[in-house]
Simulated assay, not measured.
Amino acid sequence: MSSDDTRNLDDTDPLMVRSVEKAFRVLEAFDGANRSLSLAQICVNVGLDKSAAQRFTHTLNKLGYLQKDPVTKRFELSLRSLEMARHFITANPLVNQAMPYLLHLSRETEETVNLTLPHGTDIVFAARFMSRHMLNTDVVIGTRLPAFCTAPGRAILSRLPADEAVTLLERSPLQAFTPQTVHTVDALVARLHAARDAGYATTWGEFFPGDLSVAAAILDQAARPVAAVNIGVSSARYTPEKAEELFAPLVVAAARSISQASSTF
C-alpha cells in the first residue's frame, strides 16, 4: 500500500472492513526484497499477532493468492495474484486504447516505450514495450516511481492546475536519487512551466543513472492529464539533445492521438 493510500485511510470510517484491509496488507508485504516470508516475518512486517497472521495466510492460501512451501512453511504470492493485474489491464479503456499507438511507436523507434498512470505523488507503469537495448529491466508493469523526477510524472504534473501541481510536489519525497535529480519545489515548478510550454517533459538520469526519457501527457475530455507516454533510451547511445530532437515529436503525436481516440477514459 502506497504512502498516499495509507494517509487516506480513516480509522473512524464505519464502512471500512478492517479484515479486508489487513488481508491486502498481507499480500502487499511481498515484493522484490521479500519474495517469500515466514509466518513470523509476516507478523512483523504487517503488524499482526500470530493468530491473526495464521488466519489470513490460511485463507489467502485456500483462495489461491498465496502458496505455502510444504517443507520450509514459507509463503509466496501465487500466479493467481498476477491475474488481478491482468483484470485491470484488460478492463481499463485507456490502456486498451493506447496499446496500438504504443506498439506502433515501439516498432518505429525500436526503443523502450511506456504508458504510465498517475497515482498520488507517483506514476505506475501500466504498459511497457521493451527495446532490445534494454534499460532498467527491473521496471515491470505495476512498478511505481516518484512523479517529480521522472519524465512521465513531470509531463502529467505540467498539465495540472498550478496550485494542484505544487501541492503534489510538496507532498512528494523530494530527494536526490542521482546527482542529476532536481529536487526543490521552485526548480521543479520551473521545469513544469517549461514542459507545459513545450508540450512534453524530459529527464536526464534523474532517477536511473544514464536513463534519458521524453514524455507527453495524455488528456481526457476535460483536458486533465490521465496518463503519459514516454520513450526511454540510454545516454550511452544518445545525447540528451539528440534524444529530445528525435523522440519529443513522436511522444507528443502519440499522446495526442491517444487523447483524441477515446471519449471515455
Rank of each mutant, 00 (worst) to 15 (best):
R7I: 01
L9V: 10
P14A: 08
R18L: 09
K22S: 11
S36F: 02
Q41L: 01
C43H: 11
N45P: 01
S51Y: 09
T57I: 01
H58T: 06
K62S: 10
G64Y: 07
D69K: 06
K73I: 00
F75T: 00
S81H: 09
M84R: 11
H87C: 03
L94K: 02
N96A: 10
N96E: 14
N96W: 04
Q97L: 05
Q97C: 10
M99V: 09
H104W: 04
G120W: 07
D122N: 13
F125L: 11
A126K: 14
M130W: 05
S131D: 09
H133F: 08
H133Q: 14
T137L: 07
G142P: 01
C149H: 08
A151Y: 05
P152G: 11
A155E: 14
A155V: 07
S158R: 06
L160F: 06
D163N: 09
Q175T: 09
Q180D: 12
T181E: 08
H183L: 02
R191N: 14
A201E: 13
A201G: 09
E206L: 01
F207Y: 15
F207R: 15
S213K: 08
A215Y: 07
A215C: 09
A217N: 09
L219E: 14
V226T: 10
A228C: 08
V233L: 07
S235N: 13
A236S: 13
A236M: 11
F247A: 04
V252Q: 15
V252A: 12
A253V: 00
A255Q: 11
A261D: 12
